[in-house]
Each structure stands twice: as C-alpha cells, then as structure tokens.
Design a protein around this nucleic acid. Structure first.
Lengths: 75, 75
DNA sequence: ATTTTACGTAAAGTATACTTGACATGCTTC
DNA sequence: GAAGCATGTCAAGTATACTTTACGTAAAAT
C-alpha cells in the first residue's frame, strides 16, 4: 500500500539506525520499518518530520521521481 | 487535531467549491471540509494531490509559515 | 561460542483518516 | 416563500497509521 520511498537510502547516507531515526521523529522503530518497507505511508506530520531530519522536502523523500513516473496509489 | 492550513484560501483563489476540489482529488466533500476546518490532517497522498491542484508544495499548503512558527502537534 | 547490534516479521490493540447518509443554515433567485 | 447552491454538523462505519510485545535472523565484537 505504501509508496516506495527514499527513507532507507537517506537514513543510511546519514549513518542513522532505524531506532535512532525513530527517536528523532518520535515514533516507534516498527513505524520506521513499516514505512521503509512500504507497508504504509507516514502521516503528513511524520513525513514532514522525517523530511526535516534529512533536510529535504516531503516530495523529495516520499514521492521520489521514479515513484511519480510510474504512477501512484490508484494508478 | 489537524493543522491550520491554506486549503480554504487556495481553493477560493482558484474559484473551486469544496465539492469540485473533492472530486479533483478523489475524496468525499466531508473530507475536504474536515481538512479545511482542521479536524484532521490529510494522508500524505491526499496532501500531495491537493498541493498539486494548487501547483504548490505540500509544505506550502499544509505547513504554512504561520503554522510552523507557532509549533506543531506536540509543541 | 555467546553476546550485542541492526534489521525484520507477526499479531492485537488504539488513534486517526476517510466514507456515507441525514440534516441545518445562509444566500440567491425565481 | 419555495428551490437551489455552497457550506457546515453529527454519527456510525471502514481503512489505514501507529504502538507494544514477542520472537527470528544475520553479522560483528568480545
């Protein structure tokens, strides 16, 4: 259901563990895993907080070009 | 619970009714009302679709400067 | 070889996003 | 003053986001 996103790549570039990122944005480690692995999308606020950690815009983190090219949710 | 956002203003600038905007982004009119009136935040995908209607970035529509200045969810 | 670290799954529960349908209000217009 | 349009509320239901706990696995460190 979730979009493929850039969280895992960005997190690794920033040398963060899932647990560290989770703590930085105030959610559980499970939530980070679920988002990275595309189980579901983050809420708007969580998307925003994650994007801020990476100094990126929301669209850059969660709606990567490759994703937008191949269409969204309902195709 | 939801953030104050710019949807209502942008919608009116674009001369759209709530129902028209709802149809454009594929949700019910209630959902637009709830978002405009700050009952809850849109999902990431809905935020994205709404932002696209107004040719804006998600942050510009849902995390207006005034909002960011006075802090978010948990202050 | 055991411990530690990082990543992952599963499942049950709570909170939030979204839907549908019914109804109320103010404004216009006929 | 009845009809239509745009906005809004309320309420009950479904879907998705997020939490917590428990457990599994692979790699690195001691």
């Amino acid at each position: 259901m979730g979009l493929e996103n850039c969280v895992k790549d960005l997190r690794q570039e920033h040398r963060l563990t899932q647990e560290e990122l989770a703590r930085l944005v105030g959610v559980s480690r499970q939530t980070i895993i679920s988002i990275e692995n595309g189980r579901y999308n983050p809420s708007l606020m969580l998307a925003y907080k994650i994007a801020r950690v990476f100094s990126r815009r929301i669209e850059e983190v969660f709606l990567c070009e490759r994703e937008l090219e191949r269409g969204e949710k309902d195709g």
